[in-house]
Amino acid sequence: MTRAEILKLLVLIESVYTRFVTKDEMVLFWFKIGPNLDCEKVLGKVRSHIRKSPYPPSVEDLIDYPGDMLMPSLSCTAGESGIIGNRQDSLSPWMREYSIR
Results as ranks from 00 to 15, higher is better:
residue 55 Y to M: 11
residue 24 D to C: 07
residue 36 N to A: 06
residue 7 L to Q: 07
residue 27 V to N: 00
residue 51 R to E: 12
residue 35 P to R: 05
residue 90 S to T: 13
residue 30 W to H: 03
residue 4 A to F: 08
residue 55 Y to Q: 12
residue 3 R to M: 01
residue 15 S to M: 04
residue 4 A to P: 04
residue 27 V to W: 00
residue 60 E to I: 13
residue 76 C to K: 14
residue 96 R to T: 11
residue 44 G to Y: 10
residue 89 D to L: 10
residue 74 L to D: 05
residue 53 S to T: 14
residue 19 R to N: 04
residue 71 M to Q: 12
residue 38 D to E: 11
residue 86 N to T: 08
residue 46 V to P: 04
residue 50 I to W: 12
residue 16 V to M: 06
residue 93 P to G: 01
residue 7 L to K: 11
residue 30 W to M: 02
residue 41 K to L: 09
residue 36 N to F: 13
residue 39 C to Y: 12
residue 99 S to M: 06
residue 36 N to Q: 08
residue 61 D to S: 08
residue 68 D to G: 04
residue 42 V to E: 02
residue 1 M to S: 02
residue 30 W to S: 01
residue 18 T to A: 05
residue 77 T to G: 09
residue 62 L to D: 00
residue 94 W to C: 00
residue 31 F to M: 06
residue 30 W to T: 00
residue 89 D to E: 12
residue 100 I to S: 11
residue 6 I to T: 08
residue 66 P to S: 02
residue 19 R to M: 00
residue 12 L to Y: 04
residue 22 T to Y: 10
residue 74 L to Q: 10
residue 29 F to A: 06
residue 38 D to A: 07
residue 14 E to H: 12
residue 95 M to N: 10
residue 78 A to T: 12
residue 98 Y to P: 02
residue 50 I to K: 07
residue 25 E to C: 13
residue 12 L to V: 03
residue 39 C to E: 11
residue 34 G to S: 03
residue 6 I to V: 15
residue 56 P to K: 13
residue 78 A to S: 14
residue 99 S to K: 01
residue 69 M to E: 03
residue 49 H to R: 05
residue 4 A to I: 09
residue 32 K to H: 09
residue 61 D to I: 05
residue 21 V to P: 09
residue 65 Y to L: 15
residue 97 E to D: 09
residue 8 K to V: 05
residue 91 L to H: 00
residue 10 L to C: 07
residue 66 P to F: 01
residue 77 T to E: 08
residue 92 S to N: 15
residue 42 V to M: 00
residue 32 K to R: 15
residue 65 Y to G: 07
residue 58 S to C: 10
residue 93 P to T: 00
residue 46 V to F: 06
